[in-house]
Amino acid sequence: MTTNSHALHSNDHGHDDHGGAAHGSLKSYLIGFGLSVILTAIPFWLVMTGTIADKAVTALIVLVLAAVQIVVHMIYFLHMNTRSENGWTMMAMIFTVVMVVIALTGSLWVMHHLNINMMPMHDMSQMP
């Protein structure tokens, strides 16, 4: 951050000490890998064996685990943090997440209601 750290990082490539892209370590990669193996194995095991009889509960658990795994990948593999690029990567990501949530929930919500309201009018199986 200062001229002092410039001098210390004599072999530094690029602009890293000014909050550039973050790097991972062997430990962080292994933690991330271990967590994602667990977070992948549990949902597959739940769905393949059908351990939980209630499908809605299984679906909810699977979705929550996927969300957690995405966060794990973001932190340990993509090295997301609030410091890299002076916080601009985080800002870009938050913006994208907002857009994605609006697009996904909006589409699913509107089209779901459209389906419900159209169903009695157009039963396709009765069409010629």
Partner: peptide
């Protein structure tokens, strides 16, 4: 890989359910 998490969750696992 992150996108694939979404694919196997939404398409495959929830599809089977």
């Amino acid at each position: 890989d992150v996108v694939w998490i979404g694919v196997f969750t939404f398409v495959y696992l929830l599809g089977m359910l």
